[in-house]
């Protein structure tokens, strides 16, 4: 898929995510919007998957360890045809298959449950290890947050993935620099995050997480590295593309209705020249 086509897909997934959260009335818009380009690239360009057979043996896997970004994951999966787009209107409704945080027992296409931060990362390491045990040539992709990286479990995982030389593991950090209570730098800073991962023995790249071409280059480079796990640190803007949430530190979870959602989508499309 051409980069411009991927950009259009990312824009569609943004629209779907805004509408999904607006329909319910509130949700984790910030951390959903900051990983849309990464999701678009993985699901539309990179991963060996089959939406008609979500549990296909030998597939590539993706774990959203920052499980609260569920709404963006669901928009991506719906857009790929894992389930009807209509499902997005059921976000957080009683009995839904689309709970606020990613749940592998509920949603077709979700490869592991996330929600208690740090846990999806360890599971992704287990999945990548399992792919090696089973001698698959598949890969595991995982995204963690910068706030999530305050969890000790992330660094327990970091050391073992390096020890086990999991070259089939490609991780992303969504460095959006905000967490629930405010700027990460004011709470527990993730300064020198690149060198932290380098110190743990990972292959490290740092890119603009909203630049699809940069994501493509980074993933291709990461795939060349087979003796170490890879970390792609993405500088992102929390709530990117949901313009009412872009210039505030209070965008972890926001309440807004469908009218606001439609206005925000219109504003976004105008800005993107669509």
């Amino acid at each position: 898929m051409e980069i411009n086509e991927l950009k259009r897909k990312a824009l569609q997934i943004r629209e779907m995510t805004i509408r999904e959260i607006g329909h319910f009335g509130s949700g984790h818009i910030g951390g959903s919007m900051s990983i849309v380009e990464m999701l678009t690239y993985l699901y539309y360009q990179e991963m060996r998957i089959d939406p008609k057979d979500p549990k296909k043996e030998g597939r590539d896997r993706f774990v959203c360890s920052k499980g609260h970004a569920g709404p963006a994951v669901y928009a991506t999966l719906a857009s790929k045809g894992y389930f009807p787009v209509e499902w997005l209107k059921t976000l957080n409704a009683g009995g839904t298959n689309l709970p606020s945080h990613c749940d592998m027992t509920k949603t077709p296409g979700v490869d592991f449950t996330g929600g208690s931060l740090g846990q999806g990362f360890s599971a992704a390491i287990g999945i990548a290890l399992g792919q090696k045990v089973k001698k698959e040539d598949s890969r595991t992709f995982v995204v963690i947050g910068d706030g999530e990286s305050q969890e000790g479990q992330i660094w327990e995982g970091a050391e073992t993935a390096a020890q086990w030389k999991l070259g089939n593991l490609i991780a992303f950090t969504d460095l959006n620099k905000l967490q629930l209570d405010g700027p990460t730098a004011d709470i527990v800073s993730m300064e020198n995050i690149d060198t932290r991962w380098l110190g743990f023995g990972w292959h490290v790249q740092r890119i603009n997480g909203h630049d699809l071409a940069a994501i493509a280059r980074a993933v291709e480079a990461a795939k060349e590295v087979t003796d170490r796990p890879s970390m792609i640190i993405m500088d992102t803007q929390k709530a990117h593309g949901f313009i009412p949430g872009e210039n505030t530190t209070k965008n972890h979870s926001m309440a807004f209705d469908e009218t606001v959602a439609e206005e925000a989508i219109k504003e976004l499309l105008e800005r993107e020249g669509e």
């Binding site: 592998m104 592991f112 990362f121 360890s122 287990g126 999945i127 399992g130």
Partner: peptide, 15 residues
């Protein structure tokens, strides 16, 4: 903690 998470990931691979 990481060990239990890794085990869960391995389980999801059918191991």
């Amino acid at each position: 903690a990481n060990m239990i998470g890794v085990a869960a990931g391995l389980s999801s691979m059918g191991l």
